[in-house]
């Protein structure tokens, strides 16, 4: 949020930091999370005293997925908001709308397709994420086994047919994502 509407010092730095997860190896990302939130980590060690465990379970997968996908939505929205500028927001203000009203009635409707699109991409990425998740999941069968991890497991067990069956499901999800993207793009050319 706030990428375009308000220029402020450090804006470029913030944008670059939000983009960082794109250029970081998923394995490295997973390791970083283990170091912070694992039971020997800075935060994890503290939480361990109350028997709260964040890694090697669903929470860990969710946390690392947040990291991996955090640029997606911002990256869809920032260029769009730069193009559309701040005229409409200013018009709303002169018409008496307050901050929340301006956001809900003017800003949000203008960006909703880009928002949805970013969410679809992030969703697809989370479903398919492999490296980062394999570090923090602990590979507990039936509990923290995601579909891509299952592909690897089956493949390593020489169950090639099973691996391909699981991979096909993932491939179908990927194709559906691309189709949704094409549909949104053709209906709303402003969204990339």
């Amino acid at each position: 949020m706030g990428g375009d509407a308000v220029p402020f010092p450090g804006r470029r730095a913030l944008v670059t930091i939000i983009e960082l997860p794109f250029s970081i190896s998923p394995i490295v990302a997973g390791l970083c999370y283990l170091l912070v939130y694992g039971s020997t980590g800075l935060v994890g060690g503290f939480l361990d005293q109350w028997n709260i465990q964040l890694m090697f379970n669903l929470t860990g997968i969710v946390l690392v997925s947040l990291f991996v996908t955090c640029p997606f939505v911002a990256r869809e929205l920032i260029p769009l908001m730069e193009i559309s500028g701040r005229d409409q927001e200013e018009a709303a203000l002169t018409l008496g709308a307050n901050g929340w009203q301006t956001f809900f009635y003017v800003t949000l409707p203008n960006i909703r397709w880009a928002l949805l699109y970013g969410a679809i991409l992030a969703n697809a990425r989370v479903i398919g994420e492999f490296g980062a998740v394999s570090v923090v999941s602990g590979n507990i069968r039936g509990e923290t086994m995601t579909l891509p991890l299952q592909v690897q497991l089956l493949y390593d067990d020489y169950n090639v047919a099973g691996a391909f069956a699981a991979a096909t499901i993932l491939a179908v999800i990927a194709v559906i994502t691309l189709i949704l993207r094409a549909v949104i793009e053709s209906r709303h050319p402003n969204v990339h």
């Binding site: 005229d87 200013e90 018009a91 203000l93 002169t94 008496g96 709308a97 307050n98």
Partner: peptide, 10 residues
């Protein structure tokens, strides 16, 4: 701006 009640045409 919102409390001024000035109509503006951009």
């Amino acid at each position: 701006a919102r409390l001024r009640r000035f109509g503006m045409v951009f």
